[in-house]
Design a binder for these strands. Structure first.
Lengths: 229, 229
DNA sequence: CGGACGCTTGATCTTCTTCAATGCAAGTGG
DNA sequence: CCACTTGCATTGAAGAAGATCAAGCGTCCG
């Protein structure tokens, strides 16, 4: 009855490693299927799917981090979101992916075969509500992002970004960034230099401590909160 | 079986006028209900619901235009979207409205009683797919908006804005703007002055003609398309 | 008529970008 | 093991885009 099938991504060069854990759909409901799914591995910066490619599958992150982004003709890039463990990405309203997806770090994802007019099934009312909730959460996320891009200054954007990731960290103060400065810049609508300068500025103000480019500690979280808008 | 009920908005001061047409849900599927709905009238700049207020209802535009927006502590405002005839707004993932809604022009809306955990019903699979499609279209809209805010220059933003509204106009070249410069500015993440200057610039370049502040004709649509990214 | 309001325009200032150089750590090959 | 390369991050100086501050202008409406 279900036509969901796990499948290999054509661009994958890695493979064969078994995941040690099963996904638990923390980012939303498991869209569908009780069929076996095949884990896929992607090396850093590998493309999982291209913008404009057929949206035959959608994915769930098992380990590592994935970014979904769009590149304009002029070369400017906007990162829509970073996806971590348990989050689903690649669900589309139409038959083509409107963004590309790439591995920020080495990562493992599971692909699910899309089916139905909207690419998911609606077997029962509860599932339907879950799918709707999943979509609405994505709306809220995109709207928050638009607010950040439209209203905040560079320092406010960076403060927001740090606070957001601190919440994802155990303890809430020590952040290990999976992404490079360029990714942060393209997520926040800034340049690499501005991101770097802003981080240096926050460190000089003793609001954060940067032990290495990817290791940041919030030494004064309150001061960051003040910058939240 | 349906528990959807039309009701008066507490903030409405106008009322009693009968709408001349029935909504046709061009912006998405009709979420639910075959019950009678009561049309509500709002004068220009009136608040339909406040940010943070209980999301007991959602709405559909019958005539006029509605904006959904958020105001930050520092006074900066971000307009999320402008809603026109047939579009639904105020559907939320949570129990509170994350944006406020205001009448851009005098307008008529219909309110629907929210119900169910996600505020809508999922009576059958077809309805569920429609609701999901509705939500996914909102995702795409918010993502496009984020792209505009994050990647485009002032002139590109304005060009995008004009092109978008030209598509909503019969003929596709003569635009009657329902919103003021301040609304455009807050939608595009610019200031009033920059919007005004950019429009003047486009007029000097003979790309548009401004017969009055609200009446704009695209005299060279191709030139606008070039600016699209 | 006169005031209010929205829009436009000009002058100046700030913020962020761009361009350029340097530093730093990891990987490579002799 | 050490020079050399390479890629990312940081920092500085200069420039540009847009914001801010400040008038003016036209229109609508009391």
């Amino acid at each position: 009855m279900s036509n969901l099938q796990a499948r290999s991504a054509t661009r994958s060069r890695a493979g064969g490693h078994s995941p040690t854990t099963r996904p638990h759909w923390s980012g939303g409901p498991k869209p569908d299927s009780d069929l076996p799914e095949k884990p896929l591995h992607f090396g850093q910066d590998m493309e999982i799917y291209a913008q404009g490619s057929a949206a035959e599958d959608f994915f769930e992150v098992v380990t590592g981090m994935v970014r979904t982004c769009k590149v304009l003709r002029n070369g400017r890039r906007q990162i829509d979101a970073f996806h971590t463990q348990g989050e689903v990405f690649g669900v589309e309203a139409i038959s083509e992916h409107s963004f590309s997806a790439e591995a920020v770090s080495d990562c493992t994802v599971i692909s699910y075969r899309r089916h139905g007019r909207n690419g998911v099934s609606f077997g029962d009312a509860q599932m339907s509500e879950q799918m709707f909730g999943f979509a609405m959460r994505r709306v809220a996320r995109a709207q928050d992002h638009a607010l950040l891009l439209g209203c905040l200054s560079a320092i406010e954007k960076v403060a927001n970004f740090l606070t957001e990731w601190a919440e994802h960290s155990p303890g809430g103060t020590d952040i290990t960034l999976a992404m490079a400065r360029g990714d942060i810049a393209d997520y926040l609508g800034l340049t690499i230099e501005t991101v770097s300068r802003t981080l240096s500025h926050l460190e000089r103000e003793s609001i954060i401590a940067i032990s290495s480019p990817r290791q940041i500690r919030l030494t004064n979280p309150k001061a960051l909160q003040v910058l939240h808008s």
